[in-house]
Write a protein that binds this DNA or RNA. Sequence first.
DNA 1: TGAATCATGTAATAGGTTACATGATTCT
DNA 2: AGAATCATGTAACCTATTACATGATTCA
Lengths: 182, 182
Amino acid sequence: MQSITLLGYALLGLLHGKASSGYDLRKTFTETPMGRFSDSPGAIYPALRRLEERKLITESAIVQPTKRRRKALQITPEGRVASKAWLRRPLERADVTSHMTTLMLKFAFMDGVLGEAATLRFLCSFQQELNAYIPSLASYIRAESGRLPRSGQLALESGWRGYRAQAQWVAHAISVYGGTAK
Amino acid sequence: MQSITLLGYALLGLLHGKASSGYDLRKTFTETPMGRFSDSPGAIYPALRRLEERKLITESAIVQPTKRRRKALQITPEGRVASKAWLRRPLERADVTSHMTTLMLKFAFMDGVLGEAATLRFLCSFQQELNAYIPSLASYIRAESGRLPRSGQLALESGWRGYRAQAQWVAHAISVYGGTAK
DNA sequence: TGAATCATGTAATAGGTTACATGATTCT
DNA sequence: AGAATCATGTAACCTATTACATGATTCA
């Protein structure tokens, strides 16, 4: 059994809210700064078909009064289970170091699907991992700074600044969710 | 003629400096926080073969005194041309909004390959694009903030903070390169 | 009526992931 | 001598990209 791709989880996350057509979902990707998924039909329609084959989504039975041809898709109970299981997967170090966009995608859906408490827990472990990683990256940069050319050093610094900004954001988000920051 | 992949350009960039084996290049990806490329042999060796087929790299004739079997690869003049052409490609809006890692990869190699002046020019257009994009993202967030759930709003904000951090970095980098920031 | 957009799809291609394979050399 | 690591590769599979195809409907 092939595992669900990130695009698949993104689609499931969007369908948690309301039944949508492939076209609707495509528009979400084109019109919003969401996740940077491809809005090409060659990516989305096959992805939807795969989800349908696994019975994680189905064609909505509701007849829409619109004139246009439209295949509305809705998430099934199994789909919700799969999506929730993904959202609940514990966060690991590697997620922070190389899959930040995935983490943000998870976060964006988490509140609506798992609720406030789970989201707050997620943010706290996110913060923990960031607080562990940032100093280690900093010391790596300090150690390498001699060996690296100026541009390589600056490139690393850019990464470091990015993580710091993310850490500040997490602290902010935690406070928004009513947690105790830091 | 297929275009060169990002991994291909990364390999060319590394080979600008000195001839290396596939194993050396792999280690660079595993051991440094560089670009987040896969260090799997299934990615790197085929990529190297493709570059070799296009005569952008060749097996180094220099016989190394090491005992171990080792295939050292060096960049050819054509390879340098291709790499430089890529590094010189003018920066577009889409690069900033969805290919930041590519831009940082370019930057990391640019100094050594194209020189200081070109790098400074690159940084300035980078700054220009960021300064144009950040406010537009901010106003998008402001406009959508009502319609979006809390988590969606925060996710967008995270993106915004990331771009701001990048802008601060660019200003810093420009000053390091002796340009007049902002 | 013609153009644009809505809306869903397919086909060819190619690159990455995962897993496997192989043998030499260094280390203990 | 056996284990770990060096070092290079291959094969199956799958997904995304790109381009094309199709027809209906709204708009000017």
